[in-house]
Amino acid sequence: MTTQALAAPRRMADWARRAPLLPALLFMIVVTQLPFVATLVISFLQWNALDPKSRGFAGLDNYATVIVDPDLRSSVLSTIVLTVSVVLVSLVLGLGLALLLDKKFRGRGAVRTMLIAPFLVVPVAAALLWKHVLFNPEYGLFNGVLTWIWGLFGGATPPQPDWISSMPKIAIEASLVWQWTPFMMLILLAGLQSRPMDAIEAAKMDGATGWQVFRYLTLPHLRQYLELGGLLGSIYIVQNFDAVFTITSGGLGTANLPYTIYQTFFQAHDYGQASAAGVVVVIASIIIATFALRVVSSLLRNEVQS
């Protein structure tokens, strides 16, 4: 009896406490989940804007088409290759740079700003910069440098490769690594600067080498930061559209999933199928992310134990 009588006002008080936070929570749910729910619904519809009469429920047809479509399958593969290579390379380079910047030295602020700058360039502009200013076979910087080096050694005919057509995937990856290394460096730098210094001092007193300190203290501490960088980087790079669109226009085997979906939407106008492809991307991302995070953390954990 008494507990029930007390419960009602208590619940009221609870709600009064929650009230200031609820509008934000509701707004967030509506704004972030509604488009996703709409995508889910459309993915089960037969809906091609070029054929408006045949609109209707399609069941799993769109998913079946997506899974057997060879174009989509090859774009799945290039998405995975692109994401994994860019994230891994920029994590390793970012770790290297973060370690270099960890200790104070004169001009560190300037060096840090220079290193972070590529991340701040608008992606479309960055892709244009790489395509036309660096890779261009006639007046690009890379071939200009080759000519200059050849000139130094008296070579008459310097090689002038057409970078984008001879190595399209590496060209895109290079431009993305250039943009994402600074981001990884920032996160890892944050990790390095939050290390417990007393443990490291103690280890050094006990005669641990720099490598031992790095491997048994620094690296395990950085695990969470490596995971955070890997997760955020993967989500963005799986989604990458600007670089692929600008540098190769999806040609030469570089078309990734976002690009293929873009084509299905804006050129084939098949809304149902494009939405189904989108949902497949989500499922694949979740599987890959879960798997990758497990592998990475178990690797690091083993290293700590061994």
Binding site: I29, I261, A274
Partner: peptide, 24 residues
């Protein structure tokens, strides 16, 4: 679940979201 759904919604390729968002 809500926290996970926030990330899931983020993983949908933006290109696939543009049409539903257009109608919304």
């Amino acid at each position: 679940l809500l926290l996970v759904m926030l990330l899931v919604a983020q993983m949908v390729p933006v290109e696939a979201l543009t049409i539903p968002m257009f109608f919304l």
